[in-house]
Amino acid sequence: MSCIQTIADYGLRSIGIGERMLPRSDFTMCQQFTLIGSGMLWNLYFGILALLAGFFLATLLAVAKNSEQALFRKPAEWFIFVFRGSPLFIQFFLAYEAFAMLPRAGIPIFGITVATDWITRAWAGALVVLFFNTSAYAAEIFYGALRSVPKGDLEAADAYGMAGWTKFRRVTWPTMLRLGWPSYTNEAIFLFHATTLVFFSGFPAFRQEGDALYYAKYFADKTFNPFIPYPIAAFYFILLTLCVIAVFGLINRRLNRHIPQESRRRIRFRPQIIR
C-alpha cells in the first residue's frame, strides 16, 4: 500500500472518515505519521475552541475578581482557586464521573427535555473541562495585568471624560491584554499540551477515534517500540507550538502598535508565570 493511499485511508480517521479498521500488523512509518497527524485534529479542536470561549469567560472572571463587591469577587476567586488549585487530570476524572451520573433520559426544563447523553462524550465533556480550566488560568493572568495597568493611563482616560464601559473598552481592556499577552501566549501553549490528557483520564474513545497521543500509544503498544510513535507525536507538537507562537506574536504586534518602535517589548517567551 502506497503512502498516498494510506493518507487517503487514515488522514481523517480520527473523525470517523476513511478506513474503519486501524492497521493491525506490518506497521509502516507512513501509517504512524498519518494516524498520529490525524489525531492532532482533536488536539486542535479542543485547544482552539477552549481558548476562544475561555478568552471571554477569563475576561469576565478577571474583572469580577478585581471588583470591589464581594458578590462578584468571591465566586470568581473560588472558581479560579478550584480550577487552578487542582490537577487537570483529577478534574477530567471527576467531571466524567459526575456527567455520567446525570439522568440518561434528559432533564426536563420548562417543558423541554434537555438531552444529556452527549456530555459524557469526550468532544463535549472534555471540552467543557478544558474551557473552565483555561478560563481560570487566563483569568489569573488577566487579573494580574489588570492590577498593573498604569495609573497614569486611567487618569488620562478620566481627563478625557471617559467613564464606565467606554473607559474599560478603550483604555483598561486593551492595556490589560497588552500587559498580559506574553503570559497568555504561554497559557495557550500549555492548553494545547493539556489536550493530550483527554483520552487518558476517563473519557472513552469511541470507534477508536482519539487524539494524537491516543494513536501514538496505540502504535507503541502494538509495535512494542516507544522510540518511533512518541517522537512523532512530539514532532507534531513542536510544530503546533511554533504556530501558536507565530499567531500570538502577530496579535502581540497589533496590541503594541501604538508604542514607540524602540520601547516596544518583544514578546518574551520567558514569563515567570507558566500556567
Binding site: H193, L213, A233
Partner: peptide
Amino acid sequence: VRGVPDIIFFLFVPIA
C-alpha cells in the same frame, strides 16, 4: 521540553 507535552515525556523517558 517547552514544545512537547509533558505526558509524552512521561510515557517515553522511563522506558528509554
